[in-house]
Amino acid sequence: MAAQVPALPAIRLSWWIDDARIRRMLLRLFAAALAVFIGIPLLTLVLWSFAGEWFWPNLIPTQWSLRWWQEVLENPRVTNAMFLSFTIAPVVTLLTALVAIPAGYAFARLDVPFRRTLLLLFLIPNAFPRIGLYVSLAVLYYQIGLIDTYWGIVFLHMIGTMVYMTWITTATFRSIDPHLEEAARDAGASPLRAFFSVVLPLAMPGIIVASLFSFLASVDEAQGTLIVGTPHYITMPVLLYTLISSFQRPVAAVFSVLLALPSLLLLIVAQRYLHSEYVAAGLGRV
């Protein structure tokens, strides 16, 4: 046989990656650093919300108090904003679902003319910088009288949610075996019946994930609502803008915790749906 191929020289560059112990230690450090980076800012907010008195340079409040919570929860501006945010979000999600789910089904199963072009068009809202879109939309709203209205806000929120919903539902419907639907038809179900009895239940996990993200997107929506909602329709994020700018630290902190709570709750509740593929579908594919 031909002359031997020389053995590999010791790779100096990556001995530290290949050593399992060093790698484990580095990973541990990295995880700790990330925990600090992600967790501590949030923790600080929580601390501020319970701070009776917190002067520099103490690292934790010198006095604890619940009075800011009391102030916030009794403030009509705050309760109004909360109410508005949490009533707009379900409306937005529902409307988007009503419009996007049929579209998703059509894209996945039916013969839609110019299907590819249309799907491409659905990506445009993501490709054009959102704030530019909102500003232009505000100009349009002025002209058609949607500025400073409830529905103006709803329709604006739907821009973000529509993209998610359509793409996720298309992918979800496509992943369902068409034979299942055919079997239902074969047993005598009309297309509508087959859809509601077979397809929709199977698509539920994907639709729930999409709805979750839509809900969160609507609650989170600040910049567009700021432009088209003032002065009468102040949602929670918009109110937070003003609170932050006016330096009322504990009040803003309480408000932040209030605003973040539902999202975090949803995170816990939705744990079982949050496999990599679903979240990837929710984010990466859109």
Binding site: L216, D220, A253, A260, S263, L264
Partner: peptide, 14 residues
């Protein structure tokens, strides 16, 4: 799961 407004504010205090 943290709205960007809150994240921004948290970062300010941090």
């Amino acid at each position: 799961f943290i709205p960007s407004v809150i994240a921004s504010y948290a970062m300010i205090t941090f």
